[in-house]
Design a binder for these strands. Sequence first.
DNA 1: GTCTATAATTGGATAGAC
DNA 2: GTCTATCCAATTATAGAC
Lengths: 241, 241
Amino acid sequence: MPKTKALAAASSSSNTTTSTDKPARKRAKPAVRSASAVNRRLRQIEDKRSAILGAALGLFSRFGLHGTSIDQVAARADVSKSNLLYYFANKEELYVNVLRDLLALWLEPLRGFSAEQDPGEAIGDYIRRKLVVSRDRPDASRLFCLEMIQGAPLLRDELDRELRTLVEKKSEVIKAWVAAGKLAPVDPHHLIFALWAVTQHYADFGVQVQALTGHTLDDAAFFEQTVENVQRIVLQGITPR
Amino acid sequence: MPKTKALAAASSSSNTTTSTDKPARKRAKPAVRSASAVNRRLRQIEDKRSAILGAALGLFSRFGLHGTSIDQVAARADVSKSNLLYYFANKEELYVNVLRDLLALWLEPLRGFSAEQDPGEAIGDYIRRKLVVSRDRPDASRLFCLEMIQGAPLLRDELDRELRTLVEKKSEVIKAWVAAGKLAPVDPHHLIFALWAVTQHYADFGVQVQALTGHTLDDAAFFEQTVENVQRIVLQGITPR
DNA sequence: GTCTATAATTGGATAGAC
DNA sequence: GTCTATCCAATTATAGAC
């Protein structure tokens, strides 16, 4: 299985955040073209890359890795199949890159939690933020879900590292809240699971939500109603007090 | 697309519940074999059918329709590929049959709700029952989830009919509880979504749960702890009272 | 009913010209 | 970088003997 080509040394590119490895560029000869021309070219390439990644996300998140053909992705990104294979050496590499871009987005909202905050406010806010993601990036949510269902073969490592340590840290925060009497006694893990579940549900089971309520989160009124209800259920519960 | 063969008139079979269409049987000649022998034969066939369906569920629920080959299903069910295709005319028909068997299981727990019950008890009980399903039939939960993510192309009709009417009916029950002051004011749809989400999460995101807690619902202690926490969160909420 | 070919297709990936 | 042509593997599905 050839995994070279597009993985070739991306010299000194921003290695920090998202999709790194760009197609190998040849910068040997003395700069004949103007700097701006080169930049334009680079931007063009980057645009194409993200067009492909975007198209791939849309399709993978609905039909999965095997339910999507390279051809379809190429068509949707408006490039030829072989051109796509110039940017991503093979299908799996494309898939992995799409996934990697996701993880950051995924972990983001949880980072907010800190012991100094008012728990009610922090959690209420978290629910809203996650619902915003479910509304604006349902495809991301779905792909994440798909990957989980399959046992997360390609995310397992990251799960064990990044996610795990983050969750442990935030669990401590929740425990502190409980210890301070600011929160009813609840196991941090289960609380986090509940928060994830109820918010992502509106993305992953979007068709069901639509079939039963007639609405989508895109409907502003329904969105607010959803935020309110989820917040109330989790924070106050449904037993009258 | 040939969809005949195994769909051939199953004469007078129980058309009501689950997977109906059995492979065409020839009952032309006068009954030479004893009745018991015939019955044994029929049972044998039925066993094979369900062996195939079971194997298919296991694989489809992990890798999806396209991620699973007929060969794999056949191997797992311990039949030959062509033999499998005798029982199910094609891959999609197999898939649909697996799905159909699921729906009943899916709707079941919700039917319990009735206005006479104590809501706290009814809902607490429902949570437990759903978690039992998540523990004992995680594959069913996953396949259902997979199908939803893909937009439920093969379940859409059933969604609109059966599920929808059932949910409407149970929404009325919840509304009645709220009106009677037995339940805090909450939109029935969102409550039902929350219940589904938090319980199915333990099946669909099982790997994540395991990665973060180190436990599975198969662990009896963890199961009870889960039931308790989910019940508490939904019923009492997490704000101290 | 079950098996052994085998037909028919899809789709991932490579070669090589431009 | 982009394209055309092509190879090759994997799979679905069928035909037809037993």
